[in-house]
């Protein structure tokens, strides 16, 4: 199957042959080369766009991943808070109750003093209206004492109310000094008249509050007993 003499002759003759291409052949090739050269930069730009888009996606992905991480960390924190809340929430929940409950307690000595002062003045003047006021004051003191009893029992149950108690005590001391100063300056009759009005309102409010509070405590106690 080796190439024979005739094939060798064919090869020599064909390899030595030249065929002149048409005149337009180079122009066509030139045009094709120009088109190819114009396409090349576009390809480069497209690759750049693709690379930029890829980098952008990577950055967005990283950003979202970080956000998810933070969310997970936050969730973890919240879970820990939720776990610790049952201990801490008790004082927080009771704090708003404690403040208004404590305030009248701290005020009562002042009011007792006022009542005492009023009785003294009443004795001096011998006015029967002041006796009525005295009785009213005594009733109020009794009511406040009644109101204090459940407060104390609640305070015994609570563990972390110290800060609020301290604040309430400080407020009470401040109000004491203010009231003392007012006692010195304010007229007794005007004070009595204002206290009269206040007593009526506060008495109603206090009684309503104590009733509602006692009802709540009883209700919760019954509910707890049922649960237990």
């Amino acid at each position: 199957m080796e190439p024979n003499k005739r094939e060798e002759d064919f090869r020599i003759k064909l390899n030595s042959r030249t065929l002149q291409p048409s005149e337009t052949a180079w122009d066509r090739l030139d045009a094709m080369l120009s088109v190819a050269e114009e396409k090349k930069p576009k390809r480069r730009f497209t690759w750049l766009y693709i690379a930029a888009a890829f980098i952008g996606f990577v950055f967005v992905g990283l950003f979202l991943f970080d956000q998810q991480k933070n969310n997970v960390e936050l969730n973890e924190n919240t879970t820990t808070i939720v776990e610790s809340n049952p201990v801490q929430e008790q004082p927080e929940a009771s704090a708003p109750e404690a403040v208004p409950e404590k305030l009248p307690v701290s005020v009562t000595p002042v009011k007792i003093k006022e009542a005492v002062a009023m009785t003294n003045t009443g004795k001096a003047t011998g006015n029967p209206e002041i006796r009525v006021e005295k009785n009213m004051a005594k009733e109020k003191i009794n009511e406040e004492m009644i109101a204090v009893v459940p407060q104390k029992s609640i305070q015994k149950n609570r563990v972390a109310v110290n800060v609020d108690e301290l604040l309430a005590a400080v407020d009470g001391n401040q109000s004491k000094s203010e009231l003392k100063k007012q006692n010195v300056t304010v007229d007794a009759n005007s004070l009595l008249s204002t206290v009269e009005g206040e007593l009526n309102t506060t008495y109603r409010e206090n009684t309503f509050q104590t009733i509602s509070r006692n009802f709540k405590t009883v209700k919760s106690a019954v509910a707890n007993r049922n649960k237990e």
């Binding site: 064909l14 030249t18 002149q20 291409p21």
Partner: peptide, 30 residues
Amino acid sequence: SQHAPKMLSVCRQYLKDVHQAEDVMITAFM
């Protein structure tokens, strides 16, 4: 211009039509 005449001859060996051979030669030069 140096290689086209010989290469057109090569293409002509495989393709019967010289115009077709020229087209293929241009594509090959590309």
